[in-house]
Amino acid sequence: MNFFSFKKRASIPSFAVMTGGTGGIGCEVAEILLEQGWDVLLLTRRPSKAEEQVSSGKGRFEAVFCDLTQPVDLETVSATVLQRKKPIGLLIHCAGKIQPESAGNITRVSLEEQTTINLTSPILMTSQLLPALSPNAHIVFVNSIAGVMPLQGSSVYSATKFGLRGFARSLALEFKPKTIQVSSIFLGAVDTPMLEQETTDGGSILNFVNKPLSARHVANLIVQTSAGKGREVFLPKLDGVFAHACLIMPWLLRITTPLLEKIGRIGLRRFQKHKATSNE
């Protein structure tokens, strides 16, 4: 799979710009791209940690400090990238933030942080870097099933992800066929530090209806998707089917939630047992 992707891209600029590289998925994506010969620029609040986590490959890796909650930081970094005059072949938005809380407990801080990281930053960054994209570049938005199916107890997160889907779809319409491609990856739960923190903070038990995906598996899917035409990908696929069914029939989610929560609690116990065994 990786060899095919590399060969297909041999004629385009091998420069990738990413966000969210220290959260689990991003590091795996960076390593795969480096193995394929891409030069990777990672925007992160923890450059030193990223450099420790990402193994070297054929390409060159660089981690640059950027706080996505601060639009000024993003503008500064975007301007620096533009000044390099190096065509971007791949732009990946991988950063994400979730703060579980009921609608009656939403604070201004959590609202602004989730909205800025999940929605505002990807939109601004894409707009600012469009002049640097090569004619056949690919933009990938790492989204969530919560961007298709409402997530009880995390309404702000779900709202930002619904918004990101709308932006990605609208953006794709601005480009002519066979030019810049736009893809969105809608993920269920992924075994990363973000999932562990979400669980600790009282996140949705529905995360564990299915076994959480491995970060490496997701990273491979992201790289594979970025090598083809723009599209929407749902992982697991069945989650995507169910989520769209719930959009058409809103009552479906309400009547199935008790059963899904029961299955989720069983899945959570299995996940915690597996984690405890792995840490021994």
Rank of each mutant, 00 (worst) to 15 (best):
F3I: 14
S5C: 15
I12P: 02
I12H: 06
P13Y: 01
V17W: 10
M18Q: 04
I25E: 04
G26W: 12
A30I: 05
Q36Y: 07
G37N: 08
G37T: 08
V40E: 11
L42C: 10
L42A: 08
R46N: 12
P47W: 03
E51V: 12
Q53Y: 07
G57Y: 06
G57F: 07
K58C: 07
Q70G: 01
P71D: 13
D73N: 15
E75A: 14
V77S: 05
L82D: 00
P87T: 04
L90R: 15
I92E: 01
C94G: 08
G96Y: 06
P100G: 07
G104I: 10
I106Q: 10
R108S: 14
E113V: 12
Q114C: 05
I123G: 02
L129E: 01
L133W: 01
L133G: 03
A137P: 07
S144V: 10
I145W: 03
I145L: 14
V156Q: 08
Y157T: 03
A159T: 06
K161S: 04
G163F: 12
R169V: 09
E174R: 15
P177D: 11
K178T: 12
T179L: 02
I180P: 10
Q181C: 00
Q181V: 01
V182E: 02
I185G: 06
A189I: 11
V190W: 06
D191G: 07
P193H: 13
T200V: 14
D201A: 15
G203D: 05
L206S: 06
N207Q: 14
N210G: 00
S214L: 09
A219Y: 11
L221V: 06
I222H: 02
T225P: 06
K229H: 10
P236R: 15
K237A: 06
L252K: 10
I255Y: 06
L260V: 01
L260K: 11
I266Y: 11
G267P: 08
R270Y: 08
K273P: 00
T277N: 15
S278E: 11
